[in-house]
Design a protein around this nucleic acid. Structure first.
Lengths: 186, 186
DNA sequence: TGAGACATGTAATCGGTTACATGATTCC
DNA sequence: GGAATCATGTAACCGATTACATGTCTCA
């Protein structure tokens, strides 16, 4: 009988939290600092989001909090990833890239890439980027089609917006190729 | 005494809904179709998101539903923007662009642009794009700085991710300039 | 001594996801 | 007759936002 690991990563924020803790043990406050002072400011630094998330992770055994300075007047809870936590994180990073990811979570895919290098290694990261490339190149033509119909309909604003989308996905593609080159160059 | 218009636009989805209804009267089903068959598939097409949103808007008087085919066995509720609704939408589109918008809602800003043309006119749309340009050009250097420190720290994956961000914002800038040129060219 | 960083939480509220539920119409 | 499309909802659940709350430590 297999023992199933309880608890999963429900959102981008929680992936970010688990990924950061995987890099080094962290307190809630450390996480908040990352989410305010680095380009990860993209995420919520709200205590109302972070502390409950840490509690949920600890309850499902993905992280373990150790109180430091218990004797002092300002103790802090330092969280470390457990074996189960590492497993869940690995599984989460290894999920195939879906159309939905490409459409609605294109930035999240970059977050996954960021953590992947250290956790799954260079080879898997390269596969991931190649998979991403395929998905991107598969998606762009469908936008292109809509651009053509929009142009015929003479909706200039709609057309500009679709152009935005196409250009975003094109640089995304270029970026992925560039990273692949760099990683293979080593 | 002023009569305050109740109800505001709480999310990107609800902005999309109100904006689409402003373009032409729509049923919930029409909205769902848009959210599945056009590049607006970016948004949720879930009935559990759309129908409650329509009810909220109607309750606060921003839209008005008229039942068509009440005598038939398959009536439908066609929603139109009210005067209040138009006011709220206009106000929402006229909000200044914040840092937070640029960081966490960069795609939403494009949605606002899309509706703006028809609702606020070309002049205001141009101002909006110029404001956007300033915000973008103001934000990019802060990413650049973090890239430099990341490179010194020799975290290649982190550095690549920041590069992604920078490139995204750079094409965004290029796109905005291009649209300004096109709109001024007319 | 007072501002600002350190440090952790709770509670109300709310929009969205997921899943369930129902029935009509059209077209092959 | 059956699949696909048209058409509209509800209910449980849940993560995040917002706001509130509390106290320490450090350094100028």
């Amino acid at each position: 009988m297999y023992i199933m690991v309880e608890g999963t990563i429900q959102s981008t924020l929680t992936l970010a939290i688990l990924g950061l803790i995987s890099q080094r043990p962290m307190t809630g406050y450390d996480l908040r600092k990352v989410f305010t002072t680095t380009p990860m400011w993209y995420f919520s630094n709200s205590p109302g989001a972070i502390y409950p998330a840490l509690q949920r992770f600890e309850n499902s055994g993905l992280i373990k909090g150790i109180v430091e300075g218990q004797d002092t007047l300002r103790p802090k809870r330092v969280y470390t990833l457990t074996e189960d936590g590492r497993q869940v994180l690995e599984q989460s990073l290894e999920q195939p890239i879906t159309q939905d990811d490409v459409i609605r979570r294109r930035d999240d895919l970059v977050l996954r890439f960021t953590f992947m290098g250290n956790i799954l290694g260079r080879e898997k990261t390269l596969s991931y980027l190649k998979e991403l490339l395929i998905q991107l190149e598969n998606y762009i033509p469908s936008l292109q089609e809509h651009l053509d119909t929009e142009r015929l309909a003479e909706s200039p604003y709609d057309a500009f917006s679709i152009e935005y989308g196409i250009e975003m996905y094109q640089v995304y593609t270029r970026w992925a190729k560039h990273v692949i080159d760099q990683l293979e160059g080593n």
